[in-house]
Write a protein that binds this DNA or RNA. Sequence first.
DNA 1: ATCCAGGAGGGCC
DNA 2: GGCCCTCATGGA
Length: 291
Amino acid sequence: MKIYENDSNLILEDVSDFDIEDILECGQCFHFLKIADHEYHICAKGRFLHIKQECGSVNKVIFYNTTISDYEEVWKDYFDMNTDYRHIKKMILSIDDRLETAIRAKAGIRILHQDFFETLISFIISQNKQIPHIKQLVHTLSLRYGTRVDGYDEYLFPAVDKLNDVSVDELKECKVGFRAPYIRDAVSRVYNGDIKEDELKCMSVQDAREKLMTIHGVGEKVSNCVLLFGLGRMDVFPVDVWMKRIMEFMYFGKDTKKEIIESFACEKYGEYAGYAQQYLFHYGRENGIGK
DNA sequence: ATCCAGGAGGGCC
DNA sequence: GGCCCTCATGGA
């Protein structure tokens, strides 16, 4: 991979296992806007990024108004560029080569290392909602309580202390519905230090999950998404309605409890469970498996 | 119109 | 522990 600055932009060339559309549209994040094919505005980690990919003979990714040090400090980790996805794919296929179709179809997926707090709130919102609605609500919260991006009509996700000033009634005005008290509890617990990102990162996965589930409105599935997308725990396997259908189709052939599916997948895929889950989720959803 | 969505809480047994 | 109902909102 080549990396260089050009006219205040940052360019990556010969990027392997990277497709900005696969990465953003696979359901792991909700705070982005599609400008054109393979061109997006992303709000993440308290920053804004205008990014474009040109999939010609050279796989070229343009980070607009970005320096190498911005990349090293923020985006390199965000896009999980320290992980060798060729190796990840090889290991998953050695466990079950039936994932080859899914991996080939979505070869450019990467698991984003997202901001913990935004991930927590976003996946509390996600319950019993479709992805476009989740994006809409994250946008509403950001528009009302977040910081405007200089020069763009985009708003960063609000910081903890900002959301801590927002009441349940005000949250309901944002149309989050019955999730308003859930969000309120999550914000309070993070704000008062009862829920600490650093502490969760030092805990075992089981302990961290139990701690997260003490938040009102955070159950098995939401906590697993927070662990995977917001805390970098790749050995978890969130099971939602889609993954349930996909896994039943692939492995069980009958109605099976989510807990059974989750423990089965974690044992089968081990440290690669989170990656396997994302390939399967994106591929299965686009192909309507089980519907 | 009726059903369902990247679920979880609460009541009941 | 398991089962069933409910929760607010919007799109198909």
